[in-house]
Each structure stands twice: as structure tokens, then as C-alpha cells.
């Protein structure tokens, strides 16, 4: 097949355009396609279907009571300096601390793109040990409160000792 534009070279680029639901297709050679600006290299970022653009579209749509757009846009991560506005455009955070610094805006977003808002999977061994210990301590403290409320002082004393041992271990 020859190029539909120059009618000289072989058509190697097949362009399909969908504008307002109407589909048109034509065949060009590599050179004409380049001249027409029709070559969209799928390996070059920034094509129209970029997921992050979709995400930032989702973020920009957000409006929630209590926040006027200017206030939201001025939210800034104190660690890396990224603003919330920048995040909505890039679809990516600047550093790990952004998660805490943008926490107020993050929850509704996570509800939309994820099933839950807290992690239940794998925990790293090193920093995870601390997290697991914290989780255990919290559970023990809740149990202690319950025991006191129920005036089960024997159980409460046991729990208090257990908590003390754990806290001492954590302090070492």
C-alpha cells in the first residue's frame, strides 16, 4: 500500500482517529506521518492515555466542604516542598512524608482508587518488628482499660506487667 499523502513511499503508519465518536483511518509513510505529527511513540511518556493524567483529572474534580480551592492548593509538604496543587498535576508524590502531610486530602482519594485505606499485607522485618510490637502494645492497652472498667483487677495487674515488659524491651 502506498502512502495516501505523498503517493510515493510505502505506507507503514496506520492512523486511527476517533473524534466525537467518529472513527476515521488513513495510511501514511513514516516520513509523512512525522511531518503530519501523527507518530505517537508509545514509548514516549505523555500520550493522551497517560494514567497519571486521568488520576490528576480525578483529583482536580475534588471539592469538599470546608476547603476552598486556594487553601487546598497551598497545602505543602514540609519535607520535600511539593504542593498539593503540584501533586494533582503530576499524580505522584514527592517523598514518603507527603503521605502524612497530605493525609487530610489522601483519605477520600484512597477510597476512590483502592479497596481499603489501611495496609494488611507484608511488613518489613526490620522496621516491621517495631510496628508489630506497637500493634501488640495497643491491643494490650485496650484490654487493660476493659479489665479496669470491669473491675477485673487481677487481670489488669497481669496486663500492666506485660505492657511494662514490652515497653522496657522497646526502650532498650
Amino acid at each position: 500500500m502506498l502512502c495516501e499523502r505523498c503517493h510515493e513511499r510505502a505506507a507503514t503508519v496506520h492512523v486511527t482517529k476517533i473524534v466525537n465518536g467518529e472513527k476515521t483511518g488513513y495510511h501514511l509513510c513514516e516520513q509523512c506521518a512525522k511531518e503530519q505529527g501523527e507518530i505517537m511513540n508509545p514509548f514516549i511518556a505523555g500520550n493522551a492515555f497517560d494514567f497519571n493524567k486521568l488520576l490528576s483529572g480525578l483529583l482536580n474534580m475534588e471539592s469538599s466542604p470546608g476547603y476552598t480551592p486556594t487553601q487546598v492548593n497551598q497545602l505543602r509538604c514540609s519535607t520535600c516542598g511539593m504542593t498539593y496543587n503540584q501533586f494533582t498535576q503530576l499524580g505522584r508524590f514527592g517523598c514518603p512524608d507527603c503521605y502524612d502531610n497530605f493525609a487530610s486530602r489522601l483519605e477520600p482519594l484512597l477510597r476512590r482508587i483502592q479497596t481499603g485505606n489501611s495496609h494488611s499485607g507484608k511488613v518489613p522485618t526490620k522496621s516491621g518488628e517495631k510496628i508489630q510490637q506497637q500493634r501488640r502494645l495497643e491491643a494490650l492497652r485496650r484490654e487493660l482499660q476493659k479489665a479496669v472498667a470491669e473491675e477485673n483487677f487481677e487481670r489488669a495487674a497481669e496486663l500492666r506487667d506485660e505492657i511494662r515488659t514490652l515497653e522496657q524491651n522497646a526502650g532498650e
Binding site: F51, N52, L55, G91, R92, F93, P96, Y99, D100, L106, L109, L110, I113, Q114, N117, S118, H119, G121, K122, V123, P124, T125, K126, S127, G128, I131, Q134
Partner: peptide, 28 residues
């Protein structure tokens, strides 16, 4: 992942799990 983690400290959040640049990957 475990072998690398023995040498590296990962960005990990108690609630959100492993932190990633894009929130579509956060957690696991």
C-alpha cells in the same frame, strides 16, 4: 525483597504500608 531489606530501610507507613510515588501502588 527480604534480602534487600536486610540492608535497606524502606519507606513504610504503619497505616498505608509501603509508600510509593503514586498512590495507586501504595500498600503492598
Amino acid at each position: 525483597d527480604d534480602a534487600l531489606e536486610s540492608k535497606l530501610t524502606y519507606a513504610f507507613h504503619e497505616k498505608y504500608g509501603y509508600l510509593t510515588a503514586c498512590p495507586t501502588n501504595v500498600g503492598t
